[in-house]
């Protein structure tokens, strides 16, 4: 029996997430895993925007910032439960993407890049400068989600690291499921069509403005949820979450792993999240190695790591 690509991808993800802890030498690795998942969620959004629809964003960290600070601010100022604050953040991000996306998405290539970049930088500037509200560059505390306590009362006692590993792991799977659904759906097909040839997509009736906007909003919500989860698990947040470098990280992870597929992009998120952990011994070289990896992969494996590795395997089969 042959599995559909969607089922196969989900199966691989579930197995990896469920079985990896068996290999963890210490509880610390749950923490690293959770961090990979947080990035994986944002990167899945980039797959929809860049991999499916072919649009570039260099400012998606702005949405992660909105999601993160929603979790920090809404509980304090609106008395909202942190979980609901995450939803509020996602709604605000989606609305923001809708408003900004309308004019921005008419642009193409580098122009779109610089417009999204400008948007992201504006968000991070507000977070840095509105000290009374956000604590400025020093950051601010984020209240506890409270779910771990509930689980404990219900008889499931997880360490903080374990809890966030499983919580974010499930979020990754849901995120991947949605993205994979979209891929083969009418909307996903239209997105990929406008990526392939915008003029042809328009002549078959695709309202490209509307579809690009939908992809932009969806990917913004992914970034927002990713930011929220980061804030909630760290219980602390700084404006770096919305910074230019974080935007670049998202795009790099996706493209490095292979932006055309959900699995590839998540693989990229894992590699780039693990890189600094592996390089702690050479902390001084971290930046140089990161820069080098970015250049080498793009030059020699332009399709991204995972597709290139898979092709190597397939060639081995023949």
């Amino acid at each position: 029996m042959k599995l559909s690509p969607k089922t196969a991808t989900l199966l691989v993800l579930v197995l990896l997430i469920a079985l990896s802890p068996l290999l963890f030498p210490s509880g610390y690795y749950y923490r690293v895993g959770a961090l990979i998942f947080v990035n994986a969620i944002a990167v899945t959004g980039i797959v929809i925007l860049t991999g499916y629809a072919g649009q570039i964003s260099l400012g998606h960290a702005g949405f992660a910032g909105i999601g993160a600070y929603a979790c920090a601010l809404a509980p304090v100022h609106l008395g909202l439960h942190p979980g609901l604050a995450m939803v509020l953040g996602a709604v605000i991000s989606g609305l923001m993407a809708f408003l900004v996306g309308r004019p921005i998405l008419r642009l193409k290539g580098y122009y779109l890049g610089v417009a999204t970049l400008g948007f992201g930088i504006l968000i991070s500037m507000v977070l840095n400068n509105e000290r009374q509200l956000t604590g400025g560059p020093d950051g601010m505390e984020v209240p506890d989600l409270g779910l771990r306590g509930l689980l404990k009362d219900a008889g499931l006692d997880l360490t903080n690291g374990q809890f966030w590993y499983w919580f974010c792991g499930i979020a990754v799977i849901i995120g991947a499921w949605l993205a994979l659904n979209l891929f083969n759906s009418p909307s996903g097909r239209a997105l990929r069509a406008l990526h392939g040839s915008e003029v042809a997509a328009r002549t078959v009736g695709v309202d490209v403005t509307r579809l690009k906007l939908q992809a932009f909003v969806i990917s913004a919500v992914y970034a927002s949820v990713s930011g929220s989860l980061l804030a909630l698990q760290n219980k602390f947040i700084t404006p770096d979450v919305a910074g230019f470098m974080h935007s670049i990280e998202m795009v790099t992870m996706a493209v490095l792993g292979g932006v055309g597929s959900v699995l590839g992009a998540i693989f990229g998120a894992a590699v780039l999240t693990l890189l600094p952990q592996v390089l702690t011994v050479f902390a001084e070289y971290e930046q140089m190695v990161l820069g080098l990896v970015m250049m080498l992969v793009m030059i020699f494996l332009p399709q991204g790591l995972l597709p290139s590795i898979l092709r190597r395997f397939r060639r081995g089969d023949e």
């Binding site: 570039i56 890049g113 795009v251 493209v255 820069g291 080098l292 970015m294 793009m298």
Partner: peptide
Amino acid sequence: VVSLIIITIGASIF
């Protein structure tokens, strides 16, 4: 374009 952006940003980080 995305690849070229990443390459030059990689060079800049390097």
